[in-house]
């Protein structure tokens, strides 16, 4: 197995993020996948982005400009 390195963007583990832990992942260039040192997440960039989109969904007002207070 190859040494894990940082990826091109320093992605956090999307599964740890779901429980609000900022956990850097390592990238395995041979398998083109990211993996987490804490939980057992493993996935390619598309999977990370898919889960990050899911994470954002909890912010129901994230695209809304609120001006009345």
């Amino acid at each position: 197995m190859a040494q894990g390195r940082k990826g091109k963007l320093n992605y956090r583990c999307p599964r740890c993020l779901m429980r609000e832990i900022d956990m850097d992942m390592l990238y395995d260039a041979e398998k083109a996948e990211y993996y987490c040192l804490r939980c057992s997440f493993v996935g390619d960039e598309a999977e990370v982005l898919r889960l990050n989109t899911q994470f954002r969904e909890k912010y129901g007002a994230r695209t809304i400009r609120i001006t009345e207070f």
């Binding site: 954002r56 007002a61 994230r62 695209t63 809304i64």
Partner: peptide
């Protein structure tokens, strides 16, 4: 960091 942005916008 909290991923409150959508694409490159951050009205929050």
């Amino acid at each position: 960091r909290g991923m409150v942005n959508e694409d490159r916008e951050l009205p929050y």
